[in-house]
Amino acid sequence: MEHANWAIRFLIFLLCASILIRIWQARKGKKLFIRRLPGLDAIDEAIGRATELGKPILFSLGLGGLNPTTFASMSVLRYVTTTAAKYGLRVIVPIFRPEVYPVVEDLMREAYTVAGRPDLFSPDDIRFFSDQQSTWASAVAGTMERERPAANFFFGEYGFESLIIAETGRHIGAIQIAATVSYYQIPFFILACDYTLMGEELYAASAYLSDNPVLRGSLVGQDLGKILITLLIVLGSIGATFATLKGIPNWILELLKY
């Protein structure tokens, strides 16, 4: 099947419309409710701990390029950098994809300036190591051992290096908060980190902390999409049950099949 059928086109339209309407409402100034996640308190706690110890913070954006996950992580990075700058802390950012480097550099320069501490910004704290996972992981682990950050943030997409860097961070005694959409790395972050945000909670955290209308609107709009899909699955299962028991066709399945 090269193109969608009418039912799927309608579904795409509904999903897009819900997101666009919520973004429009957020831009108009309507307050869209997002429930506070328990992990957000941990972010402030981690920055507080770093302040007490007078040690830097390490904020890793993971392996992603310039994609929605990395942009969401950058929103949190902006928040962490602005808060850390107020307390005179350095934020070290290891970079995996080279195209992310200049965006992060701009973001951090702006964050330090907004916090009133442009003098604290150092391009040397933004370090591109490699775009090979094993090499990048070795370099981040080495950086942790040398710089001894008091707080580690792992936000973004991760691969097998997640346990290497999280375990190294645990070994040096840093408080660690992770948020990743890479589901297979979540168990390792749960074990090695003090708090872990799972999957879409990363986007929720980013929307909550940044107060950006596009992020907020998208998140709330997507909730409608999730409700829609949940309803579809429930109705589809009921339809499948009747189809099995009574021998009648499952009309929802017929509608969505292509």
Binding site: I233, S237, I238
Partner: peptide, 23 residues
């Protein structure tokens, strides 16, 4: 991504229409 996600996810949504009672 539009095409990618719908081609990936729609068959899985329809595959999750499982009969709760099987006889």
């Amino acid at each position: 991504e539009f095409k990618n996600q719908f081609m990936l996810i729609m068959p899985q949504i329809t595959a999750s229409f499982k009969p709760i009672l099987v006889r």
